[in-house]
Design a binder for these strands. Structure first.
Lengths: 241, 241
DNA sequence: CGAAATTTTGATCCAGTTCAATCCATGTGG
DNA sequence: CCACATGGATTGAACTGGATCAAAATTTCG
């Protein structure tokens, strides 16, 4: 399974240079690409899941459904993201993942990856880095939900999504095609759909963004950043010995 | 620096059996124990931080201060926890950590740990596991803040804190000494102090907990778990090859 | 013992939810 | 190519859960 041009290679390379030989040993443990249709579940809540899935194209959400019927979305999953982290470390998944568009990804069994870590320690560190990045994203989300106003939250979400899409070449300098419905954004930000809608209008009214349908234009990027108190968190490169 | 009886050894052993030799190579990279006084900052927001600190005794909080003056607490840090994860992976810390009681811990330079990972790949996996656990804790926190009612959040916080204290031998079967003020709990749960106080009273009124001062008694553990929809998330053991 | 920190209570108010209804775009089959 | 179905976006009105602000009561600590 060749990995050339795969968003995940782009992503890993940014963190730690990978030699051709290393990319090859990574490619060796991958199975054939899979794809799922919109609305299909990649991970079922409560089930066991022991694979790493590197998203190539398409979008998904990781979420938890509560008894009350409410849904909290933990993460918007974009190309380049890893599904199955941190789930693979646990007995059973505490969350579900569902595709919100057609989605294709490369899979490798978690056990194979772990074996690779024993052979080439670098990969163990890469895994740590990915997990740490995941944790940092979640941390930002906590701040958002706990102590930010709705408009700040939305600004943050738009900026973050834009930055992540940009990093894998799926966005323009200040515009992008938002692949998520308002219901999804509301469930990510802990708001009701009507309110999210009004907050979106507010952003437009203040000339911070322009949007027609799902096409978002970050008209005033600096203003948005100020509003969201946006701070980019750069991963430090992995030391090599 | 001998690590015998250190809470972190207890914690790591649960995830992955460590041979005596391995504990020793771990002990070798640790410096002398440090301690800080109440209110002292372990990590300053925006600074660089490249160490792993394993808490031996005492309590701390990881938090973010916003322009508005509001504070969001990301994590209540207890003995056995690691400070400097995921911070060490990043250029600069996005968060601050401050002790809320006298606190003692063992430190090792992050670079030393990384070097150890290259020599003994197992430690790279251990690091991944710790980071994944961190991410999972944060995920639960997100659900709490986004879609749970205040009383559910508090129930969850009490159960979680109890479970974590129990794991390091600092709690009774259904009672413990809560080392955090209501202000801290409020800032963790995204509530105002007066409201947190009232929610606490509500828990008492419904005979779910009894509490005098900081001593908490989980009178009706099953009821609390039901209320919080508590589900324990067990880490799977690291495969050994 | 006095100062500071923490917990508790009360009164007011508004942001955001809830529950509908409506509007709009897109796609589908006859 | 139209009639209809479906999912998403938008709007409106009413209600309410928590925030806010302020003060008092209580505990902790120097």
């Amino acid at each position: 399974m060749p990995l050339t041009g795969h968003p995940i290679v782009t992503r890993l390379t940014r963190v730690m240079g990978l030699k051709a030989a290393e990319i090859e040993s990574l490619a060796a443990i991958f199975e054939r690409d899979l794809s799922v249709k919109k609305r299909e579940e990649l991970i079922v809540h409560g089930s066991e899941f022991r694979s790493l899935c590197f998203v190539k194209a398409g979008y998904a959400i990781r979420y938890r459904l509560l008894r009350s019927g409410k849904r909290q979305i933990l993460k918007l999953i974009l190309p380049g993201d890893v599904v199955g982290l941190p789930v693979s470390f646990f007995d059973r998944s505490g969350y579900a993942v569902v595709a919100v568009s057609e989605l294709t990804y490369a899979v490798c069994p978690f056990a194979s990856y772990v074996r690779l870590c024993y052979e080439q320690p670098k990969f163990g560190l890469v895994l740590s880095w990915l997990a740490a990045e995941e944790a940092a994203t979640y941390a930002e989300h906590i701040v958002n939900l706990g102590r930010r106003t709705p408009i700040e939250r939305l600004a943050q979400l738009l900026l973050d999504t834009h930055a992540r899409l940009l990093a894998v070449g799926l966005a323009g300098e200040a515009s992008f095609n938002l692949p998520f419905s308002q219901e999804i954004m509301a469930d990510a930000l802990g708001l009701s759909v009507p309110h999210l809608n009004r907050v979106m209008q507010q952003l437009r009214a203040e000339h911070l963004v322009t949007s027609n349908a799902r096409l978002i234009d970050l008209t005033d990027l600096a203003g948005l950043r100020r509003l969201a108190q946006y701070q980019s968190t750069d991963l430090a490169p992995i030391p090599v010995f």
